[in-house]
């Protein structure tokens, strides 16, 4: 896991890490506090090939030496991996169940959510946060979200999720306090689906 990095190939990270990570965090915090609402992180960072801007911004803002990160095969070993290691200094883990964060670039091949760390009864916060890059946050089948952070209901329609994703998310919510917390990113946009959120595909 710790081959030397070719520094010449590394894309730049935040220009002003203190300011930009603060600005990104506030957007992400609001997105998690209001599941389904869309945060625009366009101002943040031009990530390496293979990594969407919003995913790159989240990585720079939240990853460090205390957070083992799992990368999907599309990212592992590539330019994005070098970029994350260099800028975030986080350890990488090949085990989904040990990851504090998981970055999934190819949503279609996303491991089942149950493969990630679900937290434990006394420390449910130790579960994995799974960041999934999708084709778009609009244009897919409409899904109705309810739960904490949502006044009545929020309808989202992300595109490019693996088949059966919403059933998995329902199972994830049903086992609350356990469960992973999901962020969907597309380009510069991000929305959050914490475990407290109930998602149902809109009928008809």
């Amino acid at each position: 896991m710790s081959q030397t990095l070719d520094l010449a190939k590394i894309h730049p990270g935040f220009l002003d890490p203190v300011r930009e990570s603060q600005a990104v965090f506030r957007k992400v915090m609001d997105a998690v506090a209001r599941p389904g609402s869309v945060a625009d992180l366009a101002f943040a960072v031009d990530g390496p090939p293979g990594l969407d801007c919003a995913a790159a911004a989240v990585a720079l803002t939240l990853f460090d030496f205390e957070t083992p990160v799992w990368l999907d095969p599309a990212l592992a070993g590539g330019e994005a991996e070098g970029w994350i290691r260099f800028h975030a200094g986080c350890p990488l883990t090949p085990e989904t169940s040990r990851a504090a964060f998981a970055l999934v670039a190819r949503a279609q091949d996303c491991p089942p959510l149950s493969a990630f760390n679900q937290g434990d009864a006394k420390y449910p916060d130790r579960s994995t946060t799974v960041i999934v890059q999708v084709a778009g946050l609009e244009g897919g089948e409409p899904v109705v979200l309810t739960g904490p952070g949502i006044k009545t209901e929020t309808v989202i329609a992300p595109r490019g999720l693996p088949h059966g994703f919403w059933e998995q998310l329902e199972t994830n919510n049903a086992q609350f306090q356990y469960g992973v917390d999901v962020m969907l990113v597309a380009g510069q946009l991000l929305l959050a689906l914490p475990r407290s959120t109930r998602a149902q595909i809109r009928k008809g």
Partner: peptide, 18 residues
């Protein structure tokens, strides 16, 4: 910044598990 990141991660988990 490392301390801020640690606190920020805790805030997100806190929001996810009200």
């Amino acid at each position: 910044e490392q301390t801020k990141r640690m606190i920020r991660r805790s805030i997100l988990k806190a929001l996810a598990i009200p």
